[in-house]
């Protein structure tokens, strides 16, 4: 069986989750590889959630928030915007390809954009191959 990446998506409630819902109501198709977790704001997404997802077996993580300036909470997305580059640096040190973790802005009317992002990301992660952090963490113990 070919490799089907697992992607965890953290979507802000106001823009991106609504945008993803719009993709649904508009029946815009995208790969089923993403599983969405709703947060109220992209500012709630802790870097630890991303690490946890990767360690738990995800091959990629997508964080979506409102476009800069559009945040329902004024500036929450800027907090996400500030954490993201540092998180990328960290992931690079950990040896996780930067393409596996993405921060994207998706508005409530961008159902198509959301689907495009998911499709694109799924393809990229598929090309990168499985991350296998979960397996590695387990085999580390036995292999020594």
């Amino acid at each position: 069986m070919s490799f089907e990446p697992k992607i965890v998506g953290f979507l802000c409630n106001w823009c991106s989750y609504t945008g993803a819902d719009l993709a649904g109501t508009s029946r815009i198709q995208y790969p089923p590889n993403i599983n969405i977790i709703r947060v109220m704001c992209s500012a709630r997404v802790e870097p630890d959630f991303v690490l946890r997802a990767l360690a738990g077996g995800a091959d990629g993580v997508l964080i979506c928030g409102c476009h800069p300036g559009d945040c329902h909470y004024s500036e929450g997305n800027y907090k996400a915007m500030r954490r993201y580059p540092l998180l990328k640096t960290l992931l690079k040190e950990y040896g996780v390809d930067n393409d596996r973790v993405r921060l994207e802005w998706v508005s409530a009317s961008e159902g198509q954009r959301f689907a495009d992002i998911v499709t694109d990301m799924t393809e990229r992660v598929r090309a990168l191959g499985p991350l296998r952090l979960k397996t590695d963490l387990q085999t580390d113990r036995v292999e020594r």
Binding site: D21, G24, Q29, Y30, P32, I36, A115
Partner: peptide
């Protein structure tokens, strides 16, 4: 669990959608 807007309406592969 949102298995309509973010699952059945956006996927066509029955098996994968069910797994999701």
């Amino acid at each position: 669990a949102n298995i309509r807007e973010q699952c059945s309406w956006v996927h066509q592969d029955r098996l994968a959608a069910t797994e999701k």
